[in-house]
Each structure stands twice: as C-alpha cells, then as structure tokens.
Simulated scan of single mutants.
Amino acid sequence: MMRKLFALTFCMGSFAAYAQEEVAIITARLDKSPNDTVVNLYEPYSGDTASTVIKNHQFRLTMPMSKGGSVYIMQIGSNPELGGALVYLEKGKMNITGKGGYFKDATFSGDSWVKEWEEVMDLTSPDKGDGKLFAELEQKYHKAMEIGDEDAAEAYSKQGSEVEKRQKDILRKWVLAHPNSGVTGYIITVYFSKDNKEMEALYDGLGEHAKAGRILQRWKNPGKVDPSLLSLKMNEEGETPGRPGQIKIGDAAPAFTIPDVNGKMVSLGDFKGKYVLVDFWASWCGPCKPQIPYLKAANEKFKNKNFVMVGISLDSKKEAWVKAMEKHELNWLNLSSLKGWGDTAAAAYGASYIPSNILIGPDGKIIARDLYGDALDKKLMETIK
C-alpha cells in the first residue's frame, strides 16, 4: 500500500546552484498528462519528498542525492494505480516521454542508471514471463488457503518456489554482470533478503560506486545513513519493551470476547488468575506452521499447571479455520471473529503480523511476547513454577 505523500515545494534556483549539488533531475513530457496536477516524488524508507505541478503537459523534479542512489515512488495525482511508478534515482538525469497521460507505456531515458533500472523492471515485470506466472500462482495460493485447501496451496507454493528460484538465478547473473551499478542494491536487498550469506557474497563482489548507494549503505549501517524504520531496545528474548502500536511488557492485557468454533463467547476474564498464552495465527499463514509443534509441546507440558493456551485465528472463512484446526490437531481453545485483519483483539494487542503471541500473567499483565521455537518453553519454565 502506498503511503500518503507529503508535498514539499522546492524553490527553483539557478542552474549553477544545482550544478554544485548532488541531485537527480527528472524532466517529463506526457502528451495527455493533466495540467495543474501535483506530481510527488517520495522515498518510502526515509520519507524524503519533492513535488511539482504539471504545466503544458510537462514537469520537472529535482531530488538531492547526497546519500547516494535509492528507489522512489513517483506519483501523478492521487490514484497510485493510475499515476504511480517505481523509479531508481541517483545523481544525474532522467527524461520521460509518452503519448499518454501517465507513466504506463512511457519511455524512460537518460543516464546509464535509467537504462539499468528499466532492464531490471523488465526482468521482474508481473505482466509477463516468470513474473506473471509467479503473480498467478500467488493468487491461486491465497484462494486455496481461503477455503482451507492446504494440499493445493502447498502445490502452488512449490511451483512458486521453483519460479522464484529461476528469477533469482537471472537476477544474480545481472548483478554479476553489472557490479558497479547502484541498481544492484535494490536487487540484493529485495530479492535476496532471506539469505544474509548470499547478500554478503554479492555485496563483496560489487564496485565502490554500487557499495556507496543509499540502499546498501542503509543495509550495512542501520540507523546511521537514515533513521531506522523501527527503533526499539531488546531485553531478554521475548521481552520487547514495546513497538509503535503495540502494548508493552508490564501493561494490562486488553480484554476481549470472541466466539469459539461452536459460537460460544469466550472472554479473557474467564481465565483470571491463570497464565494465558494468546497465539494469533491463521490457516493461510505459512510461517505459523513451524511454530505448531512448539505450541503443542507447551500446551501438553503446562496445561495442568494453571496455564491455558488460547488461539485467535485471523481467518475470515470458517471452513478454512476449522479445516486447519483439524488437519494440524490444534487441541487447545481456539477462537475467531472471522474478520481477518479486522479482528479487534489483534488490533488491541498490536498483532500486525503472524505468528504472534503474548504471555499474560495471573495478575492480567503482559509478561512476554513473540516467543518462538525453544524460547517459548524456556520462558514458560522460568515463569511457571
């Protein structure tokens, strides 16, 4: 989802003044672009913005590049589906021409990094080739999970992994062939982010210009090039003091009342005086599956020790929810409002991702959250005597 863009009007100085700065200059002529419409340029990570207004179907934008190249969202008007484009910028010039009113089918030209970005966008396009196939498989996967058909979902996931591997092989070759391109930072941090070892290997093979880009500098030096997206202090494992929009350790646990699979309303207050592990999950959540054995073990080990486990599903379809409980033999209390991400308990607990869990003490206060793998048993052993 594209964040709201904040307009910032840049005063136009002399060309000599710009020549002394490290800037990216974008000029555009789109024959049917709507005059007097605002064009925004926005760096999603830092929030850096620039804006201008279309006059005579033309516009010009200038963005400071003192921190090196990065990826920006460029938006004509307020409809991202109609007027949005993802662009890579670094010091230099980009020119955009087209017969339409927006960026679709427009021609992007200019310095070498413009051509390089266009090549990568072509390789990863969701409108053709493996990009299109991957998008189709992703849609099929989500539809299968919505109805609880995990076998079909796993088949689509396997096919998607094969397509993803092919795409990564192509992008790896591109990086190796363009070791000094700033665009490599986008490829490495987006398409290889799950494999830190490979990210490091690809980074080590880059030239100085590529390494100096804002994207890779931000990855190598978190919080120094730009403020971190999420600044938080970690204490012991599972004891996060708090994140924006989340409750903190030591806070009173928000009350909730949610129906179980039979429609019976269950409240947190029903377990007053007990340790309660609230686990947010969903039938369509792939990363939730590896956590299930740890939840089963914890439930079996502590269920007779003043402890209760409460699963809260973020499913929106009952059939999928019930099928998943049966298939994975989730034999602890499970609740769901069947409102998906609209579940009020998830919002109250700041569960903006799943799996996510919260351990509540007998006094009704938060003891820990996000206890994954062996950390769950470790924390319960320490807490429940």
Rank of each mutant, 00 (worst) to 15 (best):
W284H: 03
A297W: 04
L86D: 12
I292W: 06
V190T: 15
V308P: 01
G148V: 12
L229M: 13
M2V: 15
Q75L: 13
K303Q: 10
P179K: 10
T189H: 09
N40R: 09
S313M: 07
G92F: 00
C285R: 06
Y42L: 11
L338K: 07
P44I: 12
L137R: 09
K197C: 02
R166D: 08
D195F: 11
V71R: 00
E116V: 08
P254A: 07
K93V: 13
L335G: 02
F256Y: 04
E90I: 08
P34K: 00
Q167M: 15
G148S: 09
Y88Q: 01
F15T: 14
D151W: 09
L89Q: 01
D270F: 04
L371Y: 01
K296P: 01
K104R: 05
E136W: 09
A212S: 13
I292E: 04
H142E: 14
R172C: 12
E150Q: 12
W284T: 08
D315G: 02
W219D: 03
K264F: 06
W117K: 07
K194M: 10
V114R: 04
S70G: 10
F59A: 06
W117F: 14
S337A: 15
G286S: 15
G273H: 03
K301R: 12
G84R: 02
G242E: 03
S193G: 12
Q58G: 11
R369T: 03
L82P: 00
K289P: 05
A177M: 11
E154L: 07
S283N: 09
T383Q: 06
D122W: 13
I247V: 08
A253I: 03
M12T: 11
F271K: 08
A144T: 12
V38D: 01
D169A: 12
S336W: 11
R29M: 13
W341F: 14
Y141E: 06
E319N: 09
K296G: 04
E119C: 05
I170M: 13
D111P: 05
K104C: 01
K233V: 14
K365N: 09
G148M: 05
K91P: 08
S66N: 12
Y18C: 13
K272W: 05
A282S: 08
L335P: 00
T37H: 00
C288A: 06
K128E: 11
D343I: 12
K67M: 14
L8T: 14
G160P: 04
